[in-house]
Nucleic acid binder design. Sequence first.
RNA 1: GGGCGCAUAGCUCAGUUGGUUAGAGCGUCACAUUGACAUUGUGAAGGUCAGAGGUUCGAAUCCUCUUGCGCCCACCA
Length: 892
Amino acid sequence: MPNNPDLPKAYEPQNCEDSIYAAWENSGFFNPDNLPGDRTEVFSVMMPPPNVTGVLHLGHAFENSLMDAMVRYQRLRGKKVLLVPGTDHAAIATQAKVEKMLIKEGMADPRKELGREGLLEKIREFSEQSKTTILNQIRKVGTSCDWSRLAYTFDNDRNLAVRTLFVKMYEDGLIYRGFRVVNWSVKGQSTCSDDEIVTIERTAKFYTFKYSQDFPIVIATTRPETKLGDSAVAVHPSDSRYQKFIGQEFMVDIGAANPLKIKIIADENVDPNFGTGALGVTPAHSAIDFAMYEKQKAKGEPIALIPVIGQDGKMTAEAGKEYEGLTCEVAREKFIDWLRRNNLLLNEEEITQNVGTSDRYGDIIEAIPMTQWWLDVNKVIPGRGKTLRELMREAVTIGLDGDAKQKVSITPERFTKLYLDRVENLRDWCLSRQLWWGHRIPAWYRPLTPNPSPVEATGEGEVYVGVEAPQGEGWTQDSDTLDTWFSSGSWTFSTLGWPNKTKDLEDFHPTNWMQMGYEILYLWLMRMILMSTYALRKIPFKDVYIHGILRDADGKKFSKSSGNGIDPLDVIKEYGTDALRLSLLTGITPGNDARFYPEKVESAKNFVNKLWNISRYIITGVSQVSVVQKPEAKTLADEWIIGRLSKITKQTEELIERFDFSLANEKLRDFTWFDFADWYLEISKIQKRDEALKENTDKILFFVLETILKLWHPFTPFVTEEIWKNFGSKKMLIVEDWPMMVVEKQDNTEFERLKEIIEKIRNWRAENKVEPKEKINLTLIVGEYFEIFKDEINLEIIKTLARIENLTLEENHDGGFSYQFNVDRQIDTEKEHARLSAEIENLEKYISSLETKLTNQEFTSKAPAQVVEGLKQKHDEAAKKAEALKQQMENL
RNA sequence: GGGCGCAUAGCUCAGUUGGUUAGAGCGUCACAUUGACAUUGUGAAGGUCAGAGGUUCGAAUCCUCUUGCGCCCACCA
């Protein structure tokens, strides 16, 4: 073992991180195909691709820490590990962002001014730039992902997957074009899915009115301007007030607007107790009303559908000449004014209501009838006998097709219920967007007549859906693009080469583990399960770990608008990557939000430095040690530390396997700092004074260090690898073997006694203000554990660590365990008396509480024997201790 | 309207299927330290586990209710 006295006094992450990462990358070990040894078991993870909308934030660093810890652990366990990195073109998010930037730079309407190709070019430029930044950031946080398999949701391979999937679904009849009310963002000039809507609360005026004086039913609304498109009034079928009108039709003249033909219809969904118990039906501008319209059509008693609001958010010609072109607000005032003048407005009041807004453009979503592409979740899939909804349900309950091995398990479990609730209420998914940045819908149209009416509006003409463009003249591709989640839904397998039958796909899918924040449970988790179970008949992953949101020190969300953003690279610069990673993985629990603050990183940095110095001490202090296969315990302390090490190895394993990264960290930290550094390292200094123990002590130090470096590596990869360099090992730590040592005796009560004595003496010294410099004499009276104190080295340990000059050992033949202090100096006997009696009192309270339990028949008969026995032991020990303390008090 | 989460030391949080005198980090106080450690070590103080009831031999942990905070969902026009 080479001595290295040149190790710097403090760990300097800035000096080694980049070169270590480069060394890992050059080794090829990020790629499972290059991993050394005979690895059969696979462990694969797909990185949730960050949006190419800018730079990574702490949340990404957090996710990378989670993934990398998991993946490094599995690699050390000898698995064939794959972590695929990637980025997401994030259709709407990126386009919205770039448009916003262009507008800020002075452009009034980027789409108009630049045109499709021009704008796309700008977005491409921007996204490529942020992609570069992001990939660099992923490297900086140390993520051990396979760069040779780097993927992008918008590259050619992924595009092929998207087109293939779309066509397959179309051919199975799951994807269809349908005319219905959609969520429309006027600002974004595009549809969006139900999942992309953020509801906000606002106040609105609630108007109660009649269409005309002789119209028999009063209705109410917060959107009077939409009433210009009403074609029915719905009432509950059993509402006695209105029953007599059901089926009747009324012509109403509403001033400057077009006259309306209103039919009174019955519908179960109308709540007779809300408002007037009657609902003005506007099929064109309300999803519920549209459903009634469809129902009426099916019944053969159709009502009209009158779109009065256009895609530009303004009133249409169908609203009437005087209304055409007005904004909704102006039209509303105009109509209310008319109602008022005609004595038709009966009431107006302020209410709070929830409205949907676009999550990217921020404007209020309008309901507008349009023809769009949809995914049917309720249609039976040919050859499968079940619907997409059923697949999604099975995947998390009984396992896909009833195969328990094809089951996604969600951590923490409570999210399973949320998922299932959502699956039950799932509606058809609107796939098409009128955005430009995204996968173009693989559909082409050809008009039947030379001068056709618009195909979209009427559905006239030929439609071709295929992976490639159709042959022949006159075809135009659909100008719409696909919802961004359509491509991310296929991420777990499109990254592995699907639709081609690749070896990767065979080897690595289903993937083993996925982590994501709960905020994309609906958006992403559900869609990945949908896509994978449909296209591959396999679940996308076996385990999904749901984490919370990272918040600032005050519990606020990190966001650009509140200006509390933290750049992970800044943190890395100041504290080092390991410290950042450690701080992100500490104090977290699955599914719950966590706070991030500098003190946390600070303490993580201190720990990393501690680990460094532990290593520095051992490495520079060791004369000659060869790699230790199996350490041999020669002293009680040796036996103890080996037992503890063995236990902590097993615990770390178990905790990572159940995704409890935080606790694994904490336990490891306690062991490293307290057991190893504070106790064993100090003891080793004493042991090494003894020539007979010196070499073996070094071996043990070395063995423990080697082991904890492996245990720490998943969490703090850089510092551990840097230390590892000094070991003269041919292998890099990243591909070392996980420690397998297990010793029988993991809990060592004898050593705990030794510790206890030292702690008691220290405590006593502090209370009696005995300077550390001052040596004292001690008489130790022991029964039960007498043997261990006969050992010279143990006495030496007590003497050194507790600063004892003369130590006298006496055996207490009554058994038990006690110790007395005999000091050659004046001490405050009164104070000592008080101290002892307080301790005795405390003990006696404890003893009596134990006695109450132990004499309780109910307890002794009903509690498990193990528990009773345990308490009995505690009781006896406490009693003996109390006895000894009393003795000590008498001797005062 | 439905659902979920959280409430434990001054602060941030642990506490596995109910079983010792409820833990850690940071902070606070005292002492010691340039001997592996920009620090670290040693010791200490600090909690009626939000409240009320219940189940149990035994509850921070399970059940019911209440209060406060946060989040999600929903077609109250």
